[in-house]
Nucleic acid binder design. Structure first.
Length: 438
RNA sequence: CGGGGCGUAGCGCAGCCUGGUAGCGCGUCUGCUUCGGGAGCAGAAGGCCGGAGGUUCGAAUCCUCUCGCCCCGACCA
């Protein structure tokens, strides 16, 4: 992508409404634009990151055996009357009437609809276990949206729903999501700690929140310090037998404020007690027959009798994750994107647009990187060098290939690492070899 | 939903108290000179001062009502 043909509306000054660093940086980088309280347009740079985060979520869901579908954002109220939640949900649910005066709602979640889809097509226990998920826009009419995409009213959520024949099988499904979540967040450079959590209006009796520790987090959390740096389990696991991993991660104390037990926390050795704030990026629930029973989602068991399916649901705040990643990875100059979610892998920075040698070297680099499948942003704007350095640092591209007349005269370019600040001076070919070898 | 604050140029703000031709910085456009960490000079464009009523000869400024946004709490992925 040539910057001169791109849409990247950077802000030099901090917008006054943005209080936390991720919100400020997302606005300054031209990733998002607020259209109403808690409602944002995703500008090209923000959308690129959102898509990369989505892709990681999709890949990890696939490994865990979940199947992607896409349900409508508008749902019929009648479906929610079946489960009883139409009246329970309150004003957070955006209610709409169509031209025939039918009650609709903009989905804040989709347990009812996925259960409806399930019960229409699945009749036999032999089709289980099943996990259906989607990544789609949700709307919750929050009383007080804030902090940019961290608490929007409209937000992108991955929501998965598991269907099993009985509780032991459902717990295995729960464990698969538990492990998939640890791997997902780890790939984004985040340290997520699973914590015992309240189930809220989703219902049920087993629930964990995945928390990123950050001073700007909205929740007060308490946990054993050893959980924070515990590495993710990775892909090389037995997906049908994850109980040991689950037990390892849940035997140490970790709870959100609502579930906090001061006595149990106090029993942790003092130097291992961690009381902090956190950002909730994922939340998983097991709730058994809460929906399958009232909505009559049953399958025939081995003995021919109908059995209500045992369900769980599993959410990841995809748009919120962008805020969490930035909170976890930035410095005074801007965002430091982990390579896995960076909007571009490499920025080719021309220090003298119009200089024949510089232009030729930049074009050569741009084409070679594109050909190698590298996401490259070619900064061919006629800004002065200082302005380019500042803006490329601001938007946090992991590698900057800096090409200017002085270096070229000696046969060299400069390769800069955004995270470490480390710079190498080397010939263009060597730099390209490094950038394309991965 | 309780409490507080703010709406003036794309962004950040001053002007309002004490009514009298709407300003500053950044950005944008033109030209010239520049060019390795947010350049300099010269010129230019851009605002029904959130909206509606009212008071007044005259309202960004005073009064009333509205809409929107932000912050603190309560609530929530």
């Amino acid at each position: 992508m040539r910057l001169s043909r791109y849409f990247l509306p950077l802000l030099k000054e901090n917008p006054s409404e943005a209080q936390i660093v991720s919100h400020r940086l997302m606005l300054r980088c031209g990733m998002i634009r607020q259209e109403a309280a808690g409602i944002y347009a995703w500008l090209p740079l923000g959308l690129r990151v959102l898509r990369k985060v989505e892709r990681i979520v999709e890949e990890e869901m696939l490994k865990a055996g979940a199947v992607q579908l896409l349900m409508p954002t508008l749902q019929l109220a009648d479906l929610w009357r079946e489960s009883g939640r139409y009246d329970d949900y309150g004003q957070e649910m955006l209610r709409i009437k169509d031209r025939h005066e039918r009650d609709l709602l903009y989905g804040p979640t989709a347990e009812e609809m996925v259960t409806d889809i399930f019960r229409a097509s699945v009749r036999s226990y032999k089709d289980l276990p099943l996990n259906l998920y989607q990544i789609s826009w949700k709307f919750r009419d929050e009383q007080r949206p804030r902090f940019g995409v961290m608490r929007g009213r409209e937000f992108l959520m991955k929501d998965a729903y598991s269907f099993d024949i009985d509780e032991p099988s459902a717990r295995k499904a729960y464990n698969r999501m538990f492990v998939a979540y640890l791997n997902t967040f780890s790939r984004m450079g985040l340290k997520a700690v699973p914590m015992r959590a309240d189930t809220g209006p989703i219902g049920g009796d087993l629930s964990h929140e995945f928390i990123i520790l950050a001073d700007t987090g909205e929740s007060a959390v308490f946990c054993h310090k050893d959980l924070v740096d515990m590495p993710a389990p990775g892909d090389d696991v037995d997906w049908d037998n994850l109980q040991d991993i689950f037990d390892e991660r849940t035997s140490l104390y970790a709870a959100t404020e609502e579930m906090h037990d001061e006595a149990a926390f106090g029993a942790i050795p003092a130097d291992k007690q961690l009381s902090a704030r956190g950002i909730e990026v994922g939340h998983i629930f097991y709730f058994g027959e809460k929906y399958s029973k009232p909505m009559k989602a049953a399958v025939s068991g081995p003995d021919g009798k109908d059995i209500n399916v045992h369900m769980g649901s599993y959410g990841v705040g995809v748009s919120r994750l962008l805020g969490a990643i930035i909170e976890a990875s930035h410095d005074e100059n801007g965002i430091i994107w982990p390579e896995s979610v960076a909007p571009f892998d490499v920025a080719v920075v021309s220090l003298r647009v119009g200089d024949a040698a510089v232009d030729a070297a930049c074009e050569q680099a741009y084409k070679a990187l594109q050909k190698a499948g590298v996401d490259v942003l070619y900064n061919d704007s006629d800004d002065r060098p200082g302005a380019k350095f500042a803006s490329m640092d601001l938007i946090g591209i992991p590698k900057q290939l800096i090409i200017g007349p002085k270096g070229l005269a000696e046969g060299n370019v400069e390769l800069k690492d955004r995270a470490t600040g480390e710079r190498q001076v080397l010939p263009l070919e060597a730099a390209l070899a490094q950038l394309t070898k991965a």
